[in-house]
């Protein structure tokens, strides 16, 4: 008895309410052409999806790196000024001063390829050919002692590269501090004594201009 009118009202609403507002297809936009997709679809995943045809040796990579990358990253990926350090840092990740490099931290080699292919060299992005990107990636892997000096990286052997730190990544487990239901926030007489333990003024790294602003009245 009850089911019938309910079904009726749903049908009624679908036809009269939903359809005129938004049917799912508004016929907006147009189909992307194959050439357009090819021009923009440059992303590369850890399983190798998206890798372009090509190959490059460590030796070739060293040349390209010296010309295109070393000004910021240093000849051996050691980093110039505050530009990113790309190599080394093994064994530092648990220390007080971790050096997060491709070798010591990055979980996937595909990330190196994807990032160089889309964003490097800084200020002249997407100027390297796929072969050059394979070569530079190979060189960076070599600097991190992941491949040998005579290695040639290619679309074919790419997914055989395993990064040493991959196993150390895990999914976000938050919340990792107690919620109200587990620990009621204290409101009265929560501490007996309070002492200042750290002060920003002693470190004195706040930009100068701002101190002038703070002093204004």
């Amino acid at each position: 008895m009850l089911k019938f009118p309910k079904t009726l009202s749903i049908v009624f609403c679908l036809s009269l309410c939903a359809t005129p507002v938004f049917a799912g297809k508004l016929n907006l936009g147009r189909e992307a052409t194959k050439a357009e997709i090819k021009a923009w679809d440059i992303d590369v995943r850890p399983d190798g999806q998206g890798l372009p045809e090509g190959k490059g040796t460590v030796e070739k990579g060293e040349q390209v790196f010296a010309e295109q990358c070393a000004a910021c990253h240093g000849d051996f990926g050691e980093g110039v000024d505050r530009w990113p350090v790309l190599a080394g840092g093994l064994g530092t990740i648990k220390s007080e001063d971790p050096v997060k490099t491709v070798g010591s931290y990055w979980p996937y080699a595909s990330t190196v390829f994807d990032y160089i292919y889309r964003a490097m060299p800084f200020g002249n992005a997407q100027s390297l050919s796929p072969d050059e990107v394979y070569a530079v990636t190979a060189y960076i892997l070599y600097l991190n002692e992941i491949v040998a000096e005579d290695f040639e990286l290619s679309k074919k052997n790419f997914t055989s590269i395993k990064m040493p730190n991959e196993k150390n990544f895990f999914a976000d487990p938050r919340p990792d501090t107690p919620s109200r239901s587990k620990k009621k926030p204290c409101m009265k007489n929560c501490k007996k004594e309070v002492k200042i333990t750290k002060r920003a003024r002693i470190i004195n790294v706040t930009p100068e201009e701002d101190k002038k602003t703070a002093a204004k009245e």
């Binding site: 850890p46 997060k100 990055w106 996937y108 595909s110 990330t111 990032y115």
Partner: peptide
């Protein structure tokens, strides 16, 4: 599946 791009592996991960 996810892409594991630079900004979700090398950066923005909590060590």
């Amino acid at each position: 599946m996810p892409w594991h791009a630079r900004e979700e592996t090398s950066k923005y991960t909590d060590l």
